[in-house]
Design a protein around this nucleic acid. Sequence first.
DNA 1: CTGAAAGCGCTAACAA
DNA 2: TTGTTAGCGCTTTCAG
Lengths: 327, 327
Amino acid sequence: MAKKPVKLDDVAREAGVSKTTVSRVLNQRGYLSEETIAKVQRAMEKLNYRPNAIARQLYKQETKLVGLIFPTIDDPFFGQLEAALENELYRRGYKVLMGNSQNNPAKERSFLRQLLNRQVDGLIVGAHNQAIGEYQRTNLPIVSIEQIVSRNVPVVASDNYNGGRLATQRLLDDGCQHIIHTNYPEDIPTPNHERRLAYEELLRQHGQTPITYHISFDDPVEKKRAIIRQIFEDHPEVDGIFADNDTNAGLIINIAGEFKRLIPEDLRVVGYDGANATRILLPQLTTIQQPINQMAETAVAMLQARINGEQMASKMLPVKIIDGGTA
Amino acid sequence: MAKKPVKLDDVAREAGVSKTTVSRVLNQRGYLSEETIAKVQRAMEKLNYRPNAIARQLYKQETKLVGLIFPTIDDPFFGQLEAALENELYRRGYKVLMGNSQNNPAKERSFLRQLLNRQVDGLIVGAHNQAIGEYQRTNLPIVSIEQIVSRNVPVVASDNYNGGRLATQRLLDDGCQHIIHTNYPEDIPTPNHERRLAYEELLRQHGQTPITYHISFDDPVEKKRAIIRQIFEDHPEVDGIFADNDTNAGLIINIAGEFKRLIPEDLRVVGYDGANATRILLPQLTTIQQPINQMAETAVAMLQARINGEQMASKMLPVKIIDGGTA
DNA sequence: CTGAAAGCGCTAACAA
DNA sequence: TTGTTAGCGCTTTCAG
């Protein structure tokens, strides 16, 4: 049967020393004779000893784990972001507990509640669910990405307003007369709305009427397609679309084909995000690129500082336009 | 300053009962009077008590954590797979510790070593690094996906051989005379090679000479592009390509454009994986679809069984061809 | 129905 | 240079 795992005590007995000594060898702390070290190491090898991380965590009151709460990982933007976060956290000695909230406040809450039970040393969140009171009532170090969570949680965001400006300006420069925008429903509190605000302002300055179609990130893809088809049906005159993310831009490009629109001749499209995976599959897409890796690094650095007890201010990072052929 | 977190003892004192009683209320175990329960609950509320998960884990000797070790999460296939795994594990009460091995055996080993220290109740792996001895020497429950890890680790795989057959047959049916294949270098032990074997057999049966170009999953994208350009330079006669994954298929389609090849007229392309994200951005791609979600469910069910002490045999799941316009 | 006490495996004062 | 001992916060026999 599963024989009991070897513990520090067993090693001590095998080596003929005390637990303290073994612990010291393990952590390379304090003064020890070469001889003792060798003896203990031999015993550890012989018994194939593996220290119990949980016991250490209990004593130290830290787990070297960071929780990541995002809507999903199955998406070019979030995939790249979480990969970069994991990488950066690993460099600093942290491992990652991943929680996908999906479109499910109950899941997010339950997940969060468990992590708050001293399972993690900190949290990086970018989920879209609202009014999860738990975020406010904890003093666990938290940093959020592109998401407003609570007054005391610093945010790492890209310059959404300027991104919206760059995208809209490009379409205007291209001579588009009927520019439409897609974005989240307005009741979801995300900095994405800055993109829409920039679009609206610029359009008004040019005497055009802003029109935004709302597509939720969590909508099933068929629903997204339906909303996009609606754009072409409601507004056959549309000659430019600024999509709030590249997945939607991809859908738009494909549905434009259904409606026999040539891109960029009949319709110009600008996307948003510029994640690696999208750029591989859709290199022709003109898009606003977020500095995803840099956002990850910044968020991790800020979290580390918060874990060390420092206060941190929110930070905004610049975006840039990537020239493809669609606008 | 950070005041000490409330512990069970504090609740007990506040409620005027023993720790045992509080623990019982917490776990809803044993007989308790309504009155005591209410009293304890009031005390927990008042003190905003959060049980310490680590202490419980130490006692119970289980963490309800499962480690996921894959090359990366920033990829349509692995993104969808890990999202599905997380979802399925969460349903069963497990949380996910994510480790991206990247192209880095040292990272994989260090990660693995830490997880083996009783940090997780089990492991699901699909990383490509070889000969990590740690996998053999542990009796932690492990299941692998599309990857041969060790004799005693059951594998969940899709029917790679049949996938290779379906793809190649499609190109042959299309009348292709010069079919080329891309796949991993042969020294990486992955079931992907079954796809190549099927391709080679079928091609020989039809009197064609199989030619495989090797592209590592972990190659930087510019290197992948270079290898694909090489295909067109070495073999201008190529009229069909069977790519071993959709990302490569996407690259091929774009590079075909550089070489002025029309798809499907001049060149037919079949991809592999059929992940959601790819199908959104590249719906026109004909590809072999793996049952990603089902693979995740199967792997989790098998892991659960192994955690419960059962032995498990490897399992193979069927694939199907998705008709796009590229072949 | 409730409590006292032992112990999960490790670390670190403090003593020697 | 090493050992004794208490304790991290929780659960659970066992006794009342």
